[in-house]
């Protein structure tokens, strides 16, 4: 399969996400992006977990902002949101976690992922300012269509943050063009028409779509939804610039009593995928 290759530049003032993809490209590797919901299973676990995932081979971390009504998520990640919300973990707490993470890691990009309401309630200018100070690199809100996103994207740009947007299997080309116009950081390609954690991933079909999306944007294209193991991660990373894995990791987090065991299990899973992708 031929894929148009853009080269991701590293400028001296380069943002962490740009720098990350430039580095990956220089090394001839593909990115691995784990997702966990902040505060799940316990607020104290998140920062050590982030470090452990980086240690195990994660290139970028997507950190979920806990929300009471995560409509785009399947039952596994929905429960993660519930565990975090029930312990009172807020967007402000998530920013504190990122601040804490940055004390030891000023290189790995952190993208927040979530739903609009917590950001709306904090206020867009205030969020952008506080997130930038905390060391956040980007925000992906799954329920904001790019054509109506100026109210969110403008304050973020001013603060130096990227707005990440989703492209779906059923997104028409003219929409993809519109999305790439406002999107920053990377394009999150949703591999299946469904919710997070759904089954039935057809890696060949996804690869063809990813190649098509890549031909339409200079941004890196990352694939998420339905990636569970080293095999699917390796298969998709042949075309995509990075793979995103969430449900499989959140499931691990939920199935261990002790925080240390949960962290170790997730790190092992990340390491497995890293190995499979680099093979």
């Amino acid at each position: 399969m031929t894929v148009q290759q853009h080269s991701f530049s590293t400028r001296p003032d380069s943002k962490r996400i740009d720098a990350c993809f430039a580095r990956l490209q220089a090394e001839g590797r593909k990115g691995l992006i784990p997702y966990v919901t902040a505060g799940d299973p316990h607020p104290d676990v998140t920062v050590p977990l982030m470090h452990a995932m980086v240690e195990a081979g994660a290139d970028i971390i997507e950190l979920g902002i806990p929300f009471s009504d995560p409509v785009a998520d399947g039952p596994v990640i929905e429960l993660a949101h519930q565990r975090a919300v029930s312990q009172g973990v807020t967007l402000a707490d998530v920013l504190v976690m990122v601040t804490e993470f940055r004390k030891k890691d000023n290189v790995t990009p952190v993208a927040l992922m979530g739903y609009l309401n917590p950001v709306e309630i904090m206020g867009y200018d205030e969020f952008a300012t506080r997130a930038a100070v905390a060391g956040v690199d980007a925000l992906l809100t799954v329920d904001v269509p790019p054509e109506d996103a100026d109210f969110l994207v403008e304050p973020m740009r001013k603060a130096g943050l990227e707005a990440i947007f989703l492209v779906s299997p059923n997104t028409a080309d003219e929409r993809i063009t519109g999305i790439t116009r406002v999107a920053g950081g990377y394009i999150y390609y949703v591999s299946i028409k469904g919710i997070t954690g759904a089954g039935g991933l057809d890696t060949d079909a996804v690869s063809r779509r990813v190649a098509h999306v890549k031909s339409m944007t200079p941004l890196p294209v990352c694939v998420g939804f339905g990636i569970r193991d080293g095999e699917s991660a390796a298969a998709l990373s042949k075309t995509a610039d990075a793979v995103i894995v969430g449900t499989a990791l959140v499931q691990e987090l939920a199935s261990h009593e002790k925080p240390a065991d949960a962290i170790a299990a997730v790190a092992a899973k990340v390491a497995d995928m890293r190995t499979a992708m680099d093979r």
């Binding site: 785009a72 799954v142 329920d143 269509p145 947007f165 989703l166 299997p169 059923n170 949703v190």
Partner: peptide, 8 residues
């Protein structure tokens, strides 16, 4: 305010 998959 909906996910991209629902936009079409």
């Amino acid at each position: 305010f909906i996910p991209e998959t629902l936009m079409p």
